[in-house]
Computed example of a mutant assay.
Amino acid sequence: MTDHIRELIQLAIDNIKYSYAPYSEFNVSAVLETATGELYTGVNIENAAYSPTNCAERTAVFKAVSEGHRNFSRIVILGGSKSNIIDFVTPCGVCRQVLVEFTNPEEFEIILAKSVDEYKIMKLSELLPYSFGPSDLE
């Protein structure tokens, strides 16, 4: 699994160049893996009006969902100022909520990476305890 995680991190590193962050200069890249092994990349895309800005995590999720995927196993997230990855980056609250919609928070892995050799693996439930999800509406 370690080699697979390193490959996912490298893909996120390679894709950070597509981030569009002219206002914050804080680039973020994500790689989402479906339960069946397909990979979807995403980057943050800023907008001068700010509220239309989209995070890397949601970009990856929306790409996957728009192609028929609804179950995910893990996501790699990395970022930094001007693409200089200097610390672990966690998903914002909105992204955490979107991830809850399509995952089992107790099983879904969030891989926070600084490099292919330096990363942390957390469960979504650790980052968003007591979340509100689809099962709460049943």
Rank of each mutant, 00 (worst) to 15 (best):
V65Y: 10
L8I: 02
T41Q: 13
Y23I: 14
R70S: 10
Y18D: 15
V31H: 05
Y18K: 10
D117N: 14
T59D: 15
V116T: 13
A60P: 07
P52I: 08
L8Q: 12
L78K: 07
D87F: 00
S135T: 09
I75F: 08
K82G: 11
T53Y: 07
D136L: 03
Y119W: 09
Q97T: 14
I110D: 09
A49E: 15
P134S: 08
E7A: 13
Q97W: 00
S73D: 05
G80Q: 03
Y50L: 11
G133I: 00
T103N: 11
N104F: 03
N104C: 09
E67C: 07
P134H: 05
A60K: 07
I5F: 10
L8D: 06
E46D: 12
A21C: 12
L11P: 02
N15A: 06
E126N: 11
L124G: 05
E7T: 10
D87Q: 07
G79H: 03
I75V: 15
L137R: 07
T34E: 03
K120A: 11
Y119H: 02
C92G: 13
E106K: 12
A64W: 01
L11A: 10
F108Q: 05
M1E: 13
F72D: 04
S115W: 09
F108Y: 10
I121P: 01
S131I: 00
F62Q: 13
L112I: 04
N44S: 07
G80F: 08
Y40K: 09
L39R: 14
L112H: 11
R70F: 10
T34A: 05
S66I: 01
N84K: 12
P129W: 01
F62A: 09
V89I: 15
